[in-house]
């Protein structure tokens, strides 16, 4: 059901949202239908289907949080500005934890996060300060395990990942991991302990109680350093966000991951259809409900962000959500003012 851009403008979310509180589900359905109409298959909220931007809204939006999600939110702000909006969006990158610290005392309107908010540590702070929030899934990142291009390792099982990166690992030769692997020394390059990427690998993939990885691998907060290290060292292995692999695919080799259902290569498709487990990780933004309902600029920015989510994700080299997840995100957004 293609809408003309004029109709889409009339459908501008702001007035509709207030008028149709009981009909929110219907609105979500309408938007979802528009999204799935896209011919390129992964284009939820795809290019050109009336983004409903109201350029008369002015104000400030303060965003802070994960440096992984930073490119997404920054791109959203840039795209909105290029389309003529004068809303001032400032995007910080204090890290997911640092972002929540500010978010839960009400300093920021939106918090970027590369992991869900912690129920035991962060949610109570928000509650104490009366901050109600809504979690919105915005994109998927396929954490990519990459090796030196000449290394004859093409696929790793989850157990092998644990043996490779786990805190108890003593493997120094690829044959220690699996006798079929080549007789080569392992050199590791992994993200620094402050990064959400490290946390995700430690907590959700390796899953050791200590939530750490082995500490004899080289680490850097700059993923470009990891890329250089892996592509320049025989037998090297490491991991980082998919965009770093995508941009350096000619000097690295991505390893497929076997979580029990065969080897799956990291790609936009496998991350979207859910087969690239457990390394496909969700990226979120958290919206302060009060800011959203009381500050038109925050509402306008968030609506624009979600309405153009696929374009923003592609522009920032992330993997857009599949239609199902996108519908859920839209529903969650519609629920804020409900």
């Amino acid at each position: 059901m293609p809408l003309s851009s004029r109709e889409a403008d009339l459908l501008n979310v702001t007035p509709i949202r207030r008028a149709l509180v009981p009909g929110l589900a219907a609105l979500a359905l309408v938007l979802t239908a528009c999204g799935s109409d896209d011919s390129d298959g992964n284009g939820n909220g795809g290019t050109g289907d009336g983004n409903g931007l109201d350029t008369s809204v002015t104000g400030e939006v303060i965003v802070d949080g994960s440096s992984t999600v930073y490119p997404m939110t920054s791109t959203a702000g840039q795209l909105m500005k290029a389309e003529g909006s004068s809303i001032e969006v400032s995007v910080g990158e204090s890290g997911t934890g640092g972002g929540f610290e500010k978010f839960c005392v009400g300093d920021t309107d939106i918090s970027d996060a590369s992991r869900p908010i912690k129920d035991d540590e962060e949610v109570p702070v928000c509650e104490e300060n009366g901050i109600e929030f809504t979690e919105l899934l915005v994109a998927t990142d396929a954490l990519t395990v990459a090796v030196h291009p000449d290394l004859a390792v093409d696929c790793l099982t989850v157990d092998e990942l644990v043996a490779l990166f786990g805190p108890k690992s003593t493997a120094t030769n690829w044959q220690d991991i699996n006798p079929d692997f080549p007789d080569e020394k392992i050199t590791g390059f992994i993200p620094g302990t402050d990064s959400g990427t490290y946390d995700y690998m430690a907590a959700d993939v390796v899953g050791d109680e200590s939530e750490t990885l082995r500490n004899d691998f080289e680490s850097s907060e700059d993923d470009n350093v990891l890329v250089q290290g892996i592509s320049g060292t025989e037998g090297a292995v490491g991991f980082f966000g998919y965009s770093y692999y995508e941009e350096n695919a000619d000097t690295l080799k991505a390893v497929a991951i076997d979580s029990g259902a065969g080897c799956v290569e990291p790609s936009a498709e496998t991350a979207q259809d859910g087969t690239y487990t457990p390394l496909a990780r969700p990226l979120f933004i958290y919206v302060n409900n009060k800011s959203y309902t009381e500050e038109p600029a925050v509402a306008e920015f968030t609506d624009y962000y979600i309405a153009n989510l696929a374009d923003i994700a592609e522009g920032a080299l992330f993997i857009p959500l599949n239609d199902e997840d996108y519908a859920a995100t839209q529903e969650a957004l519609a629920g804020i003012s409900g």
Partner: peptide, 18 residues
């Protein structure tokens, strides 16, 4: 600062007239 990848930017530019 602009961080939209060039190919994507070209696509948006055509479709959105920016």
């Amino acid at each position: 600062e602009k961080s939209i990848a060039h190919e994507q930017a070209q696509k948006f530019s055509e479709l959105r007239g920016i």
